[in-house]
């Protein structure tokens, strides 16, 4: 096309350029829809199968040989307890590591190597974590095939996510705020405790919850360390009527989790069990969406007061 000089040819040129805007917008929408529609189709399909099965008994019954009486009590209790351990392990380790790397570690090649490895850890297949945990937690540390082992395993799995989220959140704090605190005579730990940690908590919590939302759906590593697929009792209660009121027996108890319960049901030949699996899947997806939603809300709430 010749160099546009007059108004008419400029307009023609703009029209030609704008066609590419349209082409790209169409491609973008298409790319978005492939992912979104697939998820919606799967979710709706699962909901159609599963929702009729949802009732109070489904949540309060143990699994059973009879599909109609089977429930997810042991699975959701197991999932919740495992998540509790995961959070208790992953948060201090991840935040501690992230804080150290960002605030304390000298900027040299050792730190760089650690940094690259942390990022790479996020890409390690979860089954590898399962095998590692089987060797280390289950046998070496003697935790057994317990909630404790599963919690540690999943904590390890989401550790890179928590570390990266922590570092991102810390990096978003302006240098001026740090310098203001140092200029008043604060030590490094005072700066971390009074400023860095509180101001980055929104980002850290978001990372933790997103990590947990991933962990709750993990199946492979939990099977590897030996979660049961059929379990008809609950772990011992963490709260006791007599002093000291708290009990940690549940940590060493055998367990199952939601995705394993689903996996168990989908491998049954009877159609009624497939319905159960769809219902459990529906609950699991809702749980994940709720956790992500909570993360977004939390970020909004905590960042409202911090503008930079």
């Amino acid at each position: 096309m010749p160099y546009a000089r007059d108004l008419k040819s400029i307009r023609r040129l703009i029209a030609a350029h704008k066609r590419w805007d349209l082409v790209f917008a169409c491609c973008g929408v298409l790319a978005l829809m492939v992912g979104l529609l697939t998820f919606i189709a799967l979710f709706v399909d699962m909901a159609i199968d599963g929702v009729p099965r949802l009732n109070w008994d489904f949540f309060t019954n143990f699994p059973s040989r009879h599909a109609a009486q089977a429930g997810i009590l042991s699975a959701w209790v197991g999932s919740c307890l495992v998540m509790l351990v995961t959070a208790f392990v992953a948060v201090p380790l991840g935040v501690g590591a992230g804080l150290y790397l960002e605030e304390y570690a000298p900027k040299n090649w050792v730190t760089d190597v650690i940094e690259i490895n942390v990022t790479n850890l996020a890409g390690v297949p979860s089954i590898v974590y399962g095998l590692l945990a089987l060797g280390v937690f289950v046998y070496q540390f003697g935790f057994g095939q317990s909630i404790l082992s599963a919690g540690f395993t999943l904590a390890l799995l989401i550790l890179p996510v928590v570390i990266v989220a922590t570092r991102e959140a810390i990096r978003s704090i302006p240098v001026g705020i740090r310098e203001a605190a140092y200029a008043l005579g604060a030590t490094q730990w005072q700066v971390c405790k009074d400023h860095i940690i509180p101001y980055s908590s929104a980002g850290i919590l978001t990372g933790v919850i997103i990590g947990m939302a991933r962990a709750i759906g993990e199946t492979a590593p939990v099977i590897t360390i030996g979660a049961l697929t059929f379990i008809a009792f609950l772990p011992p209660s963490p709260i006791k009527a007599e002093p000291p009121f708290l009990s940690f027996e549940w940590l060493t108890s055998p367990f199952t989790v939601m995705p394993i319960q689903m996996f168990n049901w989908t491998s049954r030949p009877e159609a009624a069990f497939l319905q159960n699996a769809a219902a459990a899947g529906f609950v699991l997806v809702l749980l994940t969406l709720a956790m992500n939603g909570f993360a977004i809300w939390l970020r909004y709430r905590l960042r409202k007061n911090i503008k930079w």
């Binding site: 001026g176 007061n305 503008k307």
Partner: peptide, 24 residues
């Protein structure tokens, strides 16, 4: 003590900002 180029109050209350050096 130092005052910087760009105002850099902590994302805390007015009181806590002034009190921070004393708390340290």
């Amino acid at each position: 003590s130092m005052v910087f180029q760009k105002p850099n109050p902590f994302p805390k209350s007015i009181f806590e900002n002034v009190a921070y050096g004393l708390r340290v």
